[in-house]
């Protein structure tokens, strides 16, 4: 009795799932699912076209790059139209928006300028980020060729490729950024080993202590006499 009741229930569920409850995508995907011998109890197989729609990441070795190419000259035009308002015509940055070019030789200074040319380890990061998140507020609106062109222009602004350079899927992995060798893995557990102390000092740990810096001198803290509450 139990067995048949279970079978009945299972049949009922199958009907419910197959006909009534499934949204459109699942019904159209039903033959596909049927083909899979091990359909998961939760979730469903991802369709190739679904993966393609979201699979936009690009790695330094070029994995993930779309077909396409773009020149420095084309990139200049696309950049001026889509990017220069925030990043400046030459990647110098407007206001507090990120500076993208220049800054070489500043990383040890008091005011390091961390640009694609001076700091970023991989050109693929620029392609990936422009592709996924730029232009700010209108992201994923550029074509693959336009993205190649923008990256080519950015590389040229950083004196890394000549003016007649054309960036493509094929030559992309050959592009090396100068600061790449200067990144290394987290080493805090060795270089900061001194911070693991069993018995920190409790009494008379130093001589007289004096104030050496004060936040009020800078006076950059927001002063909100009438802060905007969220309870109005």
């Amino acid at each position: 009795m139990w067995k048949s009741a279970e079978a009945l229930l299972a049949a009922g569920m199958a009907t419910l799932i197959g006909v009534t409850a499934l949204p459109a995508w699942a019904q159209s995907a039903a033959p596909h699912q049927k083909a899979s011998a091990s359909a998961p109890a939760l979730g469903r197989p991802a369709l190739p076209e679904e993966i393609a729609a979201w699979n936009i990441d690009v790695r330094p070795d070029g994995e993930g790059l779309p077909e396409g190419h773009g020149s420095v000259k084309q990139g200049e035009a696309v950049f001026l139209q889509n990017c220069a308002t925030c990043h400046g015509e030459f990647g110098e940055g407007a206001g507090r928006w990120p500076v993208l070019a220049g800054g070489q030789g500043t990383l040890k200074s008091d005011r390091p300028e961390k640009t694609i040319g001076s700091f970023w380890p991989y050109a693929s990061t620029a392609f990936d980020y422009v592709r996924r998140a730029m232009p700010f507020g209108n992201n994923q609106s550029l074509s693959a060729d336009e993205t190649y062109a923008i990256v080519a222009y950015l590389l040229n602004l950083n004196d890394l490729v000549p003016e007649d350079f054309v960036l493509s899927k094929e030559n992309f992995p050959k592009v090396q950024l100068p600061n790449q060798p200067n990144f290394y893995e987290d080493d805090r557990e060795t270089t900061e080993k001194a911070f693991w102390k069993s018995n920190p000092c409790m009494k008379d740990c130093s001589g007289p202590v004096h104030v050496t810096a004060r936040a009020q001198i800078l006076n950059v803290t927001p002063d909100e006499d009438a802060p905007k509450g969220n309870l109005e």
Partner: peptide, 19 residues
């Protein structure tokens, strides 16, 4: 090597190298 693990969220030290 995404933006937030290369150009950001890496730690530039005094010698000009970065963790």
């Amino acid at each position: 090597q995404q933006r937030e693990e290369t150009s950001k969220y890496t730690d530039l030290l005094a010698d000009g190298r970065s963790r």
